[in-house]
């Protein structure tokens, strides 16, 4: 490797490390660990944490339930307008979350497209916990669908051929061959969706508002705390950071854990 190239690589790596690492270090080093631990008992934090875990789990479940069939369709069938569907599914990843929240409001709001019908039934979605779940699901769905679709399309056709000649109907082959083989991709996708839902801010505050105990999730609580109690904001930020790192690490390590478990079950070291 030439000296010039090496210097360029080192500089780029150092620059990126500063850009990503410095803010994180700043958050973590802001408050001493003992103070952090004390802050973790803060009722506002606990309330926001409970709500965040609940809504992000619900949003992930919703995305898996609705996204898995779509991912299967995209992976196994070709149909007119498929490209358009793919673009629609990827859209939330690049759409500004506030725009997404606004769009949700226009659809499900009191005078919105679906909102009017729902209002007749006595249901009002905006500014409820359900709205938080919908906002998170809207923003975080692409991660699960993209990963699952890739996992399903990556299955070698020979396994599906073998299943078909072994009396397996397409439904049986899906349950016993496709889903197990795509499981690592699905878990990684679900993990990313969950982590994204956990961090969702813009769409939530636009569509669901900032009501403590009802719609005030951790990211919203951090924003609010910044106005009057910086140390509380730091404590919550560190907690969110730890959760995110935990999810990403699990996704990275899961394949080797699964492999080890598998070998253990099959009676080999």
């Amino acid at each position: 490797m030439g000296g010039g190239l090496r210097l360029l690589l080192v500089l780029a790596a150092a620059g990126l490390f500063l850009l990503l690492g410095l803010p994180l270090a700043a958050v973590v080093s802001r408050v001493p660990p003992s103070e952090l631990l004390a802050r973790l008992g803060d009722p506002m934090l606990l309330e926001a944490l409970r709500l965040s875990l609940l809504t992000s789990a619900a949003a992930t479940a919703l995305v898996v339930a609705l996204g898995l069939p779509v991912a299967y369709l995209l992976a196994t069938r070709s149909f007119p307008g498929k490209r358009l569907v793919e673009v629609l599914i990827d859209l939330p990843m690049v759409l500004p979350p506030t725009v997404a929240g606004f769009a949700l409001l226009l659809a499900f709001g009191r005078h919105g497209l679906a909102g009017r019908t729902l209002a007749l039934l006595g249901v009002s979605v905006p500014f409820t916990t359900l709205a938080v779940v919908l906002a998170q699901a809207f923003i975080a769905a692409p991660f699960f669908i993209t990963a699952t679709r890739a996992g399903l399309s990556g299955i070698e056709p020979r396994y599906l051929d073998a299943a078909a000649t072994l009396r397996a109907s397409p439904g049986h082959a899906l349950r016993r061959v496709m889903l197990p083989l795509a499981l690592p991709s699905m878990l990684a996708g679900a993990g990313m969706t969950w982590a994204r839902a956990l961090g969702e801010f813009g769409a939530t505050i636009t569509f669901a508002g900032n009501l403590p105990g009802v719609t005030q999730t951790m990211p919203l609580a951090v924003y609010l705390a910044l106005q009057h109690d910086v140390d509380a904001a730091v404590a919550m930020s560190v907690l969110l950071l730890a959760l995110s790192v935990g999810v990403l690490l699990s996704i990275r390590l899961a394949p080797s854990w699964l492999g080890a478990l598998d070998r253990a079950r099959a009676g080999r070291p």
Partner: peptide, 14 residues
């Protein structure tokens, strides 16, 4: 295929 009374051993076994 799944309604045929056939056994198939592909070249790479699968």
């Amino acid at each position: 295929p799944w309604r045929r009374d056939v056994g198939y051993v592909p070249q790479d076994y699968a």
